[in-house]
């Protein structure tokens, strides 16, 4: 028993180091003075010059702004569609098209991105020929593509949260006289709100981060941040990308820290509640 505990624990520690070492090295070298990126220049480091360079890089700022807008819209639309799909799968029982919907919401999660990207572009081309819309590729087609693959993830999150809830809750509300829309607004929505929130965050991250599908459906003048980064790093390492990575890690870390504190707080409340219930049993 002990030996295996030791082995798996060692694997865990090494695995975590493996996961964090590259991120750590990027952060360290973002403060390096040398152009050579991975050779520490002790004389002039640490320095913030790559951060300064980054902040004056028009191209990156413009791309970041575009990515931000696309991610906001895509995540919001994906949450609406994914919630509908998740509710249909978890609550409507057997309906026509159920298998189809279930298949179409799980497939995009594992589908190789080059295939999704190619097929979406060919669709947009065909649509343009047939109905004249969308006009060319750009932010609109990128957003449509992102909504499509993001909603699959939201569906899974919402569906699994809903399956964890007793369907009798909604039936009870209806039994007490609430119409379906009422039931959704007063019971279902509050219950799945955490799932919707994490689905939105997930969708935002996926959209913000996507390169391959975006490359297919983007046009000239609609370069997203990942596209700009890719074109920069494809031919070697550039120090300002380290600075960019550090900023993004910082933002995520802050968000996680806040949510962890919040969860701790809620958990403490839960513990207190459990104690109350235990007292009630006496």
């Amino acid at each position: 028993m002990r030996a295996r505990g030791l082995f798996t624990r060692t694997a865990l520690v090494l695995g975590l180091m493996f996961l964090y070492l590259p991120i750590l090295s990027m952060i360290v070298f973002s403060f390096n003075n040398s152009r050579l990126v991975t050779v520490w220049d002790p004389a002039h480091s640490p320095t913030l010059k790559w951060y300064v360079a980054l902040m004056s890089n028009e191209q990156i700022l413009r791309a970041a702004w575009l990515s931000m807008r696309i991610a906001l819209i895509s995540a919001s639309a994906a949450v609406v569609l994914g919630t509908l799909a998740g509710m249909a799968l978890a609550r409507l029982g057997a309906f026509r098209g159920r298998m189809l919907l279930a298949g179409m919401t799980t497939a995009p999660i594992v589908m190789p991105e080059v295939i999704t990207g190619l097929s979406l572009l060919l669709l947009f081309v065909a649509m343009q020929q047939l109905i004249g819309w969308p006009k060319g590729v750009g932010a609109v087609t990128i957003t449509l593509a992102h909504i499509t693959f993001c909603m699959a993830y939201v569906t899974v999150v919402v569906q699994s949260r809903l399956s964890g809830f007793d369907e009798a809750l909604e039936e009870a509300a209806m039994d007490l006289g609430a119409r379906p829309l009422r039931v959704f607004l007063r019971i279902t929505l509050p219950l799945i709100l955490p799932a919707i929130a994490s689905g939105w965050l997930l969708a935002f991250t996926l959209s913000w981060d996507d390169l391959v599908i975006t490359q297919f459906v983007a046009g000239p003048g609609s370069s997203t941040l990942p596209m700009v980064i890719f074109s920069k790093v494809r031919f070697g390492v550039t120090p300002d990308v380290n600075a960019l990575a550090t900023i993004m890690v910082l933002i995520v870390a802050t968000g996680i820290a806040i949510s962890t504190v919040w969860m701790r707080y809620r958990q403490q409340r839960r513990v207190r509640d459990l104690q109350l219930a235990a007292l009630a049993n006496l």
Partner: peptide
């Protein structure tokens, strides 16, 4: 009105 086996109280 129905009283559910699981009670179905809104959490």
């Amino acid at each position: 009105n129905m009283m559910f086996q699981s009670y179905a109280l809104f959490p």
